[in-house]
């Protein structure tokens, strides 16, 4: 069925679909080859997804399966355009799991221009602050009144260099049970300028499981098929040394 549907698409639709799936194509790629390639990719993706999902997610996915195969519609971004930028400096940090967070940011075009035109050109960094946590006091109050970037609470920090066009990044959190905050920093010859500071997140501190815990805390996640694979990690961070200068 997948093949039938792919064959119904025009070559330009297939190329668009391939691009959306991150496939690299040579200029003269033939339609038949494109169909083969996409079929293989789609089947591989599907089988990976099915293996990755735990029971509640498999059940949920099933609710939306009303046809045998995916509909090969390509995206229609132009129908409802969203702002490309919001003309402000801001950075937001979201916790994905105890080891990873996701940061996205916006920089005012004027600030990007200043970075580009200064001599030598300014550098852009993310500075990740690790701050003292309050293990054992993760009450609502503790969460909402977590500390700011106070030098007295900062235990460690490191920088990640960025390109001007970057707008998001996954960040490996070195320690669980710690608070994290990020600053978006422009680095000029004359010194640093903080463009934006993120919210503060607290990385959960997983408790060690005892034998009795296996009895009292049954897990959804003990299926070996659900464990993450290396390829799932969205990106690697650049080491602190590399981060000093591009």
């Amino acid at each position: 069925m997948i093949r039938d549907k792919l064959e119904r698409l025009s070559k330009s639709e297939l190329e668009k679909l391939a691009r959306e799936k991150g496939l690299k194509l040579d200029p003269g790629t033939k339609k038949e080859y494109l169909v083969d390639l996409l079929q293989e990719t789609i089947e591989e993706e599907r089988s990976e997804r099915e293996l990755d999902n735990n029971s509640p997610m498999r059940v949920k996915a099933c609710k939306f399966r009303i046809i045998e195969d995916e509909v090969f519609q390509t995206r229609v971004e132009e129908s409802f355009p969203l702002p490309g930028e919001y003309n402000e400096n801001r950075i937001v940090l979201l916790l994905q799991d105890p080891s990873w967070a996701f940061a996205y940011w916006d920089i005012r075009p004027a600030d990007v221009e200043e970075l580009k035109t200064s001599r030598p050109p300014g550098q852009l960094f993310l500075r990740i602050y690790e701050m003292a946590g309050t293990p054992g006091a993760r009450s609502a109050k503790a969460s909402r009144t977590s500390p700011g970037v106070d030098p007295r609470t900062v235990q460690d920090f490191y920088d990640i260099p960025l390109n001007y066009r970057d707008s998001n990044r996954y960040i490996n959190l070195p320690k669980t049970g710690a608070y994290y905050c990020i600053e978006l920093i422009a680095f000029f010859r004359a010194g640093e300028k903080i463009l934006a500071r993120s919210n503060i997140i607290l990385s959960p501190h997983p408790n060690l499981r005892t034998e009795q815990d296996n009895l009292f805390f049954p897990s959804h996640f003990d299926d070996p098929q659900s464990y993450p694979r290396e390829s799932e990690i969205p990106q690697r961070i650049i080491s602190d040394t590399d981060a000093l200068y591009l």
């Binding site: 937001v92 799991d97 105890p98 501190h205 969205p234």
Partner: peptide, 27 residues
């Protein structure tokens, strides 16, 4: 007080925050 968690794969936010969908949160 329970901790940050979900019943999604691996127990946290991976299902709703990953390379396929993270673009939505900015907006």
């Amino acid at each position: 007080v329970p901790d940050f968690s979900s019943w999604g794969n691996m127990g946290y936010a991976q299902v709703w925050l990953n390379g396929s969908n993270h673009w939505i949160y900015r907006h």
